[in-house]
């Protein structure tokens, strides 16, 4: 049916090929150099990877479409740096498959939200935002606290992430499900988790409920790690100095009287 018995008509094929050539060059030229970019941008050898629980939380963030209203990209503008913290560096999202920079701030930027509020605040806020911030227009996510997190197949998720370039070890993949549970169960044995993911891994009952690991646990664990996987942007003196000298920042601060 796909027609070898139709003659290949020259004119329409030439037109099609011409369209492809004219159209594809622009993207190619802009995107190709970005894959050799690792040589020129900052690097962070100490950068941590998402734990299984944080990755599960990130997937909930994606599933609920949080990125539609919250950006995770602080631009090199003075007011943004003052409002949200040091501007985002490329290296900070190098393990983000996909990136969640966002395009709209119906709510505030979340690139550095980690650690700014307590777990209790996040849990209460996600359950009903208007209990904590009366004017908020954020949706309620009460069911996250009631839904148990599916941890059984998290090893598959880590394996897929490794396939696209995130350095998860075999031990991380093998223990993914157990590590996810351990991170939200501080009373249990968490030595393996901490050994695999580092001393700074946050082990807490994020949603305040010790009995189960809920989707709320995962999402709060993810929110609390935002901006904390890499310390590259965390040297305030250096970052602010850079923002002040970047031409972009000066341009953006023009509203200042």
């Amino acid at each position: 049916m796909f027609g070898t018995h139709y003659r290949i008509e020259r004119k329409s094929v030439i037109l099609a090929v011409a369209i492809m050539i004219v159209a594809s060059i622009g993207g190619l030229i802009e995107i190709a150099p970005l894959f050799t970019i690792d040589d020129t941008v900052e690097t962070d050898p100490d950068m941590r990877v998402y734990t299984p629980l944080e990755l599960a939380g990130r997937n909930i963030y994606i599933r609920e479409g949080c990125y539609a209203c919250h950006s995770q990209m602080i631009r090199t503008l003075q007011d943004e740096v003052e409002r949200y913290g040091p501007y985002s560096l490329a290296v900070e999202s190098k393990y983000d498959h996909p990136m969640l920079w966002g395009s709209k701030r119906t709510g505030p930027d979340l690139a550095r939200i980690g650690g700014k509020y307590s777990d209790q605040w996040h849990t209460a806020h996600l359950t009903n935002p208007r209990d904590v911030v009366p004017q908020s227009i954020m949706p309620r996510y009460g069911w996250l606290g009631r839904a148990q997190l599916h941890t059984a197949h998290l090893g598959d998720d880590l394996r897929a992430m490794r396939a696209v370039g995130v350095p998860y070890t075999d031990a991380m993949i093998a223990n993914a499900a157990a590590d996810a549970v351990a991170q939200a169960s501080p009373d249990d044995d968490t030595a393996g988790l901490v050994e695999r993911y580092g001393e700074e891994t946050q082990v807490r009952t994020f949603d305040g409920d010790r009995r189960t690991v809920s989707e709320m646990d995962a999402l709060v664990a993810y929110l609390q790690i935002l901006g904390k996987l890499s310390k590259a942007a965390e040297q305030p003196a250096k970052a602010v100095a850079a923002a002040a000298t970047a031409p972009a920042a000066a341009e953006g601060g023009q509203a200042r009287p």
Partner: peptide, 17 residues
């Protein structure tokens, strides 16, 4: 569930392209 082949900057450029 799937994971994008690209991450971070490359993913942002690809996605907005």
């Amino acid at each position: 569930k799937s994971y994008s082949a690209f991450a971070g900057v490359q993913d942002a450029m690809t996605q907005w392209w």
